[in-house]
Nucleic acid binder design. Structure first.
Ligand code: FES
Ligand code: FES
Lengths: 138, 138
DNA sequence: CTATATATGACTTAATTTGTCAAGTATTAA
DNA sequence: TTAATACTTGACAAATTAAGTCATATATAG
């Protein structure tokens, strides 16, 4: 059904929250939780993934928290999605993943739709940036 | 990760198979199985869904099977996807499904991306028809 | 030193996807 | 009429993935 996972929704909500914040002082998991009511421990996991993917920076200890590591204009939505749930891979029609497709790539008549879908999804996600969202611009 | 389910892949493969067939004599599950190696009982389930959604017709008894019910030009890929797995609903930000979104639709800054994604996916799937696939046309 | 916060990794639970099966019904052909 | 073929229905089981929790460790401000 292609539904958006909570990982994605929560991850993006957290990033938007950080983007709306002052950009100087770190925002703790608790802070984000109070704004968005995302399950705390789950949110923490997601933030760790965002950090490992270079999207946020963490400050440990008292008064610590998370800060965006880049300019929101440089953060594609696709980066965020990839960070929290791995590459956006709508199809698996490759030689390596034989079991995930019909195994007849060359003659496969269905493949083109899935490829097209894969492409438009990736296009939208990589054209939009975090900045677009926080500024309400097209 | 937004991956395409086997339901979708198998469903479309079956429809393409029926579309490639003569259009007169019914094609049995066994026939489709021999062409595509889709788990038989699973395939059967999918065909029933396709029938219930008016995309194929079934003929019972010996020499029975399935036939397309419409002109492939009138069958959108979206119809097939909807038939085998219900509506393509990338987001659930409605009043009824409060738990599936951030519950702050009006002020939600993340919603626009998901809506856009939802729209492009539905657009691609409803612009392409079964005929496009079997004819290798754009 | 203490309170606050993140780091890590294992773990549990719930939901969904994927696939199987048995018993029943309809149809054709011999 | 009978045997063989093939769809119908509904329930079920297994496998995978998503969603969420927790204990323990580490770091820092004050
Ligand atoms: S090549 Fe992937 S479904 Fe056919
Ligand atoms: S309204 Fe759906 S995520 Fe915010």
């Amino acid at each position: 059904m292609l539904k958006i996972s909570t990982r994605c929704r929560y991850g993006l909500l957290a990033m938007v929250e950080l983007g709306q914040h002052d950009g100087q002082t770190p925002m703790s998991v608790q802070d984000i939780y109070q704004k968005q009511r995302i399950p705390k421990f789950y949110l923490q996991q997601l933030l760790v993934k965002l950090r490992r993917n270079g999207l946020v920076e963490s400050v440990r200890g008292s008064k610590g928290g998370f800060v965006l590591k880049k300019d929101p204009k440089q953060i594609k939505i696709l980066d965020i999605v990839k960070a929290v749930e791995g590459p956006v891979q709508l199809i698996f029609c490759t030689k390596k993943a034989k079991d995930r497709c019909c195994r007849r790539i060359k003659e496969c008549l269905t493949r083109p739709v899935w490829v097209e879908l894969h492409e438009v999804v990736n296009k939208v996600l990589s054209e939009r940036t975090l900045h677009d969202l926080t500024q309400n611009l097209p």
